[in-house]
Nucleic acid binder design. Structure first.
Lengths: 240, 240
DNA sequence: CGGACAATTGAAGCCGGTCAAAACTGGTGG
DNA sequence: CCACCAGTTTTGACCGGCTTCAATTGTCCG
């Protein structure tokens, strides 16, 4: 039940997005792509830029964020292996509303706009899958908004730790707690708080035996406890 | 420029959503609908419910919101005349993630799921328009998220007043400031704050000559001033 | 080994939430 | 038509969660 809810925080993987495609269509998309190696911290696209294609994350992790008035950034999503980037702006026929940057060394394939749109125009399958994916994203956004507007920083931190635990799960050993690898600053920008507040809360969580942490890594060791801190009552997916 | 930005807060009107349809398709949608009169405060659908169709707002206004853990509600959108409701859940093939309720007496047409999906399956036009609309909504949501996470209540209030001014604009006299007709509670739930805080800020705005207000109505009289309070620097749409 | 950057800790102060109560409004029935 | 009641708006007081500023410690790399 909670599992269902958390899994709701993942976009459809590209495998699913592209699964209705014919072999030729698939080739037309992925085959036309150019794969580029980004090192940690590189910007993939920037808010206000003109979209010229979409990006497929082959490996690594990417933060999607928006610059704030005060010079910081608000992170609202983390993309990992197998996910697509930058298709919203293309579909909406707008400038990028957000920025994307790697938080790890990553391999990313660029698929030119024309190839994507051509396949999209000819595949009702892809259209429908995208509509479904976007419809689903809607509920994720409403959740974020409600969380930000009504929950304490403490609750939001706990909640984000649960999401990150999923996000950083090893495909080899999915059973064990993940090593969450994210700078304090990025984590703070994700939770929507100041670095200092974040650090203090992490200390508390550690002292309470909920997590263990080093400089660069956080690991949940008392999952039940973190869930309790997150106060997910009423977020039962059946009730969402 | 600001105008562009604010207009970004409106979803595509249904006229636009349905404009690529043939006469038969249009008839199949709207003709199959049943129009119902809702009085102020009635609930149209509820989070967790099973979607059985979509709703078209003929007249009146509808709030979209999500119940919060503490028993309140977070309003994240206001629908008015000509807008569609409830299609996200249908597209995402999920339960409703949010609730919708009228804030005025309203006429709303219900279009059954099957009719909608049938037309959707046969019209690439409609698919594309919907994809475009959803892609656009994306940028609105990340704006909301960034605003909630990084702006003060005061800034958010000013910003929401500007949105509401557009939302309540009379089609007859579009030039003049709107009479914003929304209960304090609803406005507070939209801004994401407590009633009391909202009231106090409204007082300040009034004393500062930015707005005038009665019990049930708010009107912006110093638009420039409100824009200044909202601190929109960096929200230039070109830079979004 | 030094220098830059990230993480941590301390202290002060304010924004905004909460509780409580008064003022006001509109609607209803006598 | 007026008095009363319920709901909404407003004001007051208090306090606590977070932000901010500042300074210290820790860590990674060239």
């Amino acid at each position: 039940m909670l599992k269902n809810f958390l899994s709701g925080n993942f976009r459809l993987k590209t495998d699913q997005l592209f699964e209705g495609l014919t072999a030729e269509e698939h080739e037309s998309l992925m085959g036309s792509g150019v794969t580029h190696l980004y090192s940690k911290g590189e910007i993939i696209f920037r808010e206000g830029g003109i979209p010229t294609g979409i990006f497929y994350v082959l490996s690594g992790r990417v933060k999607k964020y928006k610059a704030t008035a005060k010079g910081g950034e608000q992170i609202f999503y983390l993309c990992s292996e197998g996910e697509l980037l930058g298709y919203h702006a293309l579909l909406g026929e707008e400038f990028y509303p957000d920025s994307a940057a790697t938080i790890e060394n990553s391999q990313i394939t660029f698929i030119p706009k024309d190839n994507f749109l051509k396949v999209l125009r000819n595949s009702t399958e892809l259209s429908n899958t995208l509509l479904k994916a976007l419809g689903h994203e809607f509920s994720l956004f409403i959740n974020s908004i409600t969380n930000l507007a009504t929950k304490s920083v403490r609750e939001r931190l706990a909640f984000n730790l649960l999401i990150l635990d999923e996000k950083f799960k090893s495909s080899v050993q999915p059973g064990i707690p993940s090593d969450i690898n994210l700078s304090r600053t990025d984590l703070a920008n994700m939770v929507g708080t100041a670095k200092e507040t974040l650090v203090r809360l992490l200390q508390e969580f550690k002292r309470a035996g909920l997590i263990e942490k080093t400089d660069k890594m956080i690991r949940i060791i008392d999952r039940k406890g973190v869930i309790k801190e997150a106060n997910l009552m009423g977020l039962n997916p059946r009730k969402m």
